[in-house]
Design a protein around this nucleic acid. Structure first.
Ligand SMILES: [Zn+2]
Ligand SMILES: [Zn+2]
Ligand SMILES: [Zn+2]
Ligand SMILES: [Zn+2]
Lengths: 142, 142
DNA sequence: TCGTATATTGATAATCATTTTCAAAAAGGC
DNA sequence: GCCTTTTTGAAAATGATTATCAATATACGA
């Protein structure tokens, strides 16, 4: 899984004429070994421990590249912070977000997806992507 | 419809001990007479024509109040601008967004809403609100 | 290996939307 | 009118993100 992501990014990089750098390798390893839905700042702080020489801007730029390459997805839960999560080819999920403790649960619902397509078709829209987030309290916080 | 919104905001204001000001009256009138999904800046610019004395910050603050009072809803379509739309009591809708021309279409789908509740229940979540946006191209832009 | 053209980095400054600050003005009750 | 509290508007502050740019690193062909 991780190897294929690395490969996928390498393919993207060479197709785009990007040069390979150790900073990007480090950021990629760190990102892939991390829990999901992390902030640029979270990843930067995590990196800084072992690599105090990597700059903030580089982490920003690199995460943008990951998103562009398709191995990551940008998500925003309305708290003003952009988060990144791993993107598994051919898979898709939406989110339940606890607004008290910040817990995030992923779910997939084939019927909802189908209904979305129907709605779009009814209005003549060609959908490229969508965002479905359910905000509330998780079991522990209810 | 407009009158009841005005009334609703007045009720909210007096319950909160807010003083009535002509700036808020003007902003409220302007907001209610406006098309939907408008930016703070859009409303500010519209106001400035007839009321060059109303400040940016006041429009920001007042729109936040409208949202708090329940007569408006804050929405974010991922373009970095917060928008506000009229909130009709007891009604709900989601959005189709054209990423080319910016067209916004509202829709309601009872089945999707119901499925969302089911998903939330399955994961033990108590949902307070949700966000469903379908991004793509509208008929004209396809 | 060396040279060169090109891409990348990191520190810093810039940007952009939004929020805060604060003194002056306005509102509401007495 | 007087006094207290809220509101306003201009400007400064904030916070996340992006751009700038000189220095550095990479890729590749000679
Ligand atoms: Zn929780
Ligand atoms: Zn996720
Ligand atoms: Zn369109
Ligand atoms: Zn709407």
């Amino acid at each position: 899984m991780i190897i294929s992501k690395k490969q996928a990014f390498q393919d993207f990089a060479s197709a785009k004429g990007l040069k390979s750098t150790k900073q990007r390798d480090i950021i990629l390893d760190s990102f892939l070994s991390c829990h999901q839905h992390l902030t640029t700042e979270e990843l930067y702080l995590k990196l800084k421990t072992d690599n105090p020489n990597i700059g903030f801007a580089t982490v920003y730029r690199t995460l943008k590249l990951f998103a562009e390459s398709g191995i990551a997805r940008e998500i925003q839960f309305g708290d003003g912070q952009t988060r990144y999560e791993h993107m598994h080819a051919g898979e898709h999920h939406d989110h339940l977000v606890c607004t008290r403790c910040g817990a995030i649960v992923e779910f997939e619902n084939e019927t909802i997806e189908k209904l979305q397509s129907e709605v779009a078709a009814q209005h003549g829209f060609t959908i490229k992507n969508h965002k479905l987030e359910l905000y509330g309290y998780c079991v522990k916080c209810s």
